[in-house]
């Protein structure tokens, strides 16, 4: 059974059609990319998938359960996690707390235990602190755990966002332009990182990206959006040679 299945999803902002009849099937373990010019509706699709917007039409099924109508915290607790195009860390909080917050739904204690620090409180907090530190260590930012997130250099903030998204314990990870603002060298590192977390956490990944190097380098399947409509879908090779895509998005020049 496919992990994610979107059928006929449409969304309007007022009279403007942001996403039109969007279809997507993701098999477990896949790494798929969504590309398209600015304003094509890529981030809107992520917002629809995670419940930030409620799709006006269509259905989105994840592991068999309907997502439309659920709140974002319910959807993310079902193990869909994401990062943001413009980094949205809790920037006044410590690196560690950023990751701890993302464990919210996995902490078992109840309000009274929290208020009196009794029962499962101590055990659970200790477990989550340890897990968070492990995650930070895996992404090699554990030495910055007590640093304020805002003080981190850009590249590490991106990395922290990935750590935070992984803390949710996702099966499906949505990466919104993870390479934005990175130089070629950093992109190489990022590609390696994405491949590594994919194997390590057994993830299905859907990513939005403009950097062709990254998209063509790691994605197994691509979907091209233009003005909210799906233009083409296929392997990177097919997309590269698709005349419609070349015209709408990549221009006349061949991509290398």
């Amino acid at each position: 059974m496919s992990l994610l299945e979107a059928r006929g999803v449409s969304h309007y902002f007022g009279g403007l059609c942001a996403v039109d009849d969007f279809n997507l099937t993701l098999e477990p373990g896949e790494l798929m990319g969504i590309i398209g010019p600015n304003g094509a509706g890529k981030t809107t699709i992520f917002n629809l998938l995670t419940g930030v917007y409620r799709a006006g039409k269509g259905s989105i099924r994840f592991g068999g359960a309907e997502l439309i109508g659920k709140t974002p915290h319910q959807i993310t607790a079902m193990q869909i996690s994401r990062t943001f195009q413009n980094i949205r860390l809790f920037k006044d909080l410590s690196v560690l707390d950023n990751v701890r917050i993302a464990h919210y739904s996995q902490i078992a204690y109840r309000p009274l235990e929290a208020v009196f620090h009794v029962g499962r409180y101590r055990r659970e907090e200790r477990r989550i602190i340890n897990r968070s530190m492990e995650l930070l260590a895996m992404l090699k930012i554990d030495h910055l755990a007590t640093e304020t997130a805002d003080n981190l250099p850009y590249g590490l903030q991106r990395r922290l966002e990935i750590a935070r998204a992984l803390a949710v314990g996702p099966e499906l990870l949505l990466l919104d332009e993870p390479a934005a603002g990175m130089n070629p060298n950093e992109i190489d590192q990022l590609m390696e990182l994405i491949g590594w977390i994919r194997r390590q956490f057994d993830l299905t990944i859907l990513l939005i990206e403009h950097q062709m190097k990254l998209v063509m380098g790691i994605c197994e399947r691509l979907l091209v959006l233009d003005f909210g409509a799906t233009l083409a879908e296929g392997s990177p090779h097919e997309i590269q040679n698709n005349p419609k895509v070349l015209e709408a998005y990549l221009g006349e020049e061949p991509v290398g």
Partner: peptide, 18 residues
Amino acid sequence: RGVLAIREDEIASELMTV
């Protein structure tokens, strides 16, 4: 921590399961 997260960014905290 949820309270602090709401102060920082309410939508991001929802998306981090809060």
